[in-house]
Amino acid sequence: MGLTRDFFIALSKNQVLNSGAKKWGLKLGASKMVAGTDIDSMMKSVKELNAEGISATIDNLGEFVYSREEALAAKNNILDTLEAIQQHGVSAHMSVKLTQVGLDVDFGFCLENMQEIVAMAANYAIFINIDMEDYSHLQQTLDILEALLKEYDNVGTVIQAYLYRSEKDMEALRDVRLRLVKGAYKEIPDVSLQSASDIDSNYLKLIKNRLQLPVFTSIATHDHVIINEVKRFVKENDIPLNRFEFQMLYGFRSEMQKELAREGFNFTTYVPFGEDWYGYYMRRLAERPQNLNLALKSLVSK
């Protein structure tokens, strides 16, 4: 399993394959996990989710951005998506990766791009979640979030349970809307827990600590054991349902998503779209290599 995961993580970082993927379209099974390559197809998917009582957090996919031109193009795509959310009146917010809007180009340039994005979103009463990337970008991400919070309150970020520092980071952000995840990148033992059981244990600890605070939290997991424990904890401790939501990825455990929404829990689906689908898709295969079956079935059916 470890070798398979490492293999797909390595593929996700291959810029040549990423460039080629833009020409292939949504193949290799990616259409099961990516809601189209353009705003119109993505918006159709979001409306279908809304009809089931499910909200969306939209990710306009983009990776390997090392020039100002690419970062500005990505920023404009995000602004266009915000306009579409507003115009269509859907229940949705946005997730944004800082490397997509210039973090690897220049810190100040990235901050300026994010200020423009968050300002437009604030004008439309749309929340912006800053996705957490690998450990090498973590502190810069928190620094940009801190700068944005001085002007806006419609912005938050992600805490990854496998990192040793996450409990401290979460405490520093106790008044900020957060998404809690286990963590999807391969990090060294010096900075992160390595065993699944240790990660699960810390994840539940962070969730329970957080749910006792009067601030909104997104619990992003497909793990039914974790979900059931959260449901038990919430009931036992009389935690209001409007204090949190469950989140899952588009194309994963769709029936469970609908069931949780029917049970009365706030539910949001992470909806990725765009031509830059390749790196995202490879990381999903790394997390759950059984998803390779989808890719193989897709190839066989063509």
Score class of each variant (00 low, 15 high):
125 A>M: 09
19 S>H: 15
9 I>H: 08
68 R>H: 10
258 K>L: 12
134 D>F: 10
85 I>T: 04
68 R>A: 04
63 E>M: 09
13 K>H: 09
47 K>I: 06
73 A>F: 10
145 L>A: 06
16 V>Q: 09
138 L>Y: 10
224 H>T: 11
74 A>D: 08
300 V>P: 13
223 D>R: 06
4 T>K: 12
205 K>Q: 14
157 T>L: 05
40 D>C: 00
136 S>L: 14
89 G>E: 11
109 F>C: 05
100 Q>G: 07
288 R>P: 06
60 N>I: 00
254 S>W: 12
48 E>F: 07
282 M>F: 06
158 V>F: 00
126 I>T: 06
93 H>N: 12
144 I>Y: 01
16 V>L: 12
149 L>P: 01
274 G>R: 09
134 D>W: 14
164 Y>M: 00
193 L>V: 00
201 S>H: 11
210 R>N: 04
192 S>T: 03
198 D>Q: 12
83 E>Q: 14
2 G>C: 02
171 E>W: 13
260 L>G: 12
36 G>M: 08
43 M>W: 03
215 V>Y: 09
196 A>C: 08
110 C>W: 06
45 S>M: 09
192 S>M: 02
271 V>T: 10
40 D>Q: 14
156 G>Y: 05
293 N>D: 10
190 D>Q: 14
99 T>L: 07
137 H>N: 10
233 F>C: 05
141 T>V: 15
281 Y>M: 08
153 D>T: 08
192 S>R: 04
280 Y>C: 06
176 V>Y: 00
33 M>G: 06
203 Y>T: 13
245 E>V: 05
201 S>Q: 15
100 Q>W: 04
197 S>D: 15
152 Y>F: 13
120 M>K: 13
87 Q>L: 09
240 P>L: 07
299 L>G: 04
99 T>W: 14
5 R>F: 00
58 I>Q: 03
244 F>V: 08
16 V>N: 08
243 R>L: 11
273 F>V: 07
248 M>F: 04
168 K>W: 11
92 A>W: 05
272 P>C: 13
81 T>A: 15
234 V>Q: 15
222 H>G: 04
55 S>G: 15
157 T>E: 01
116 E>A: 08
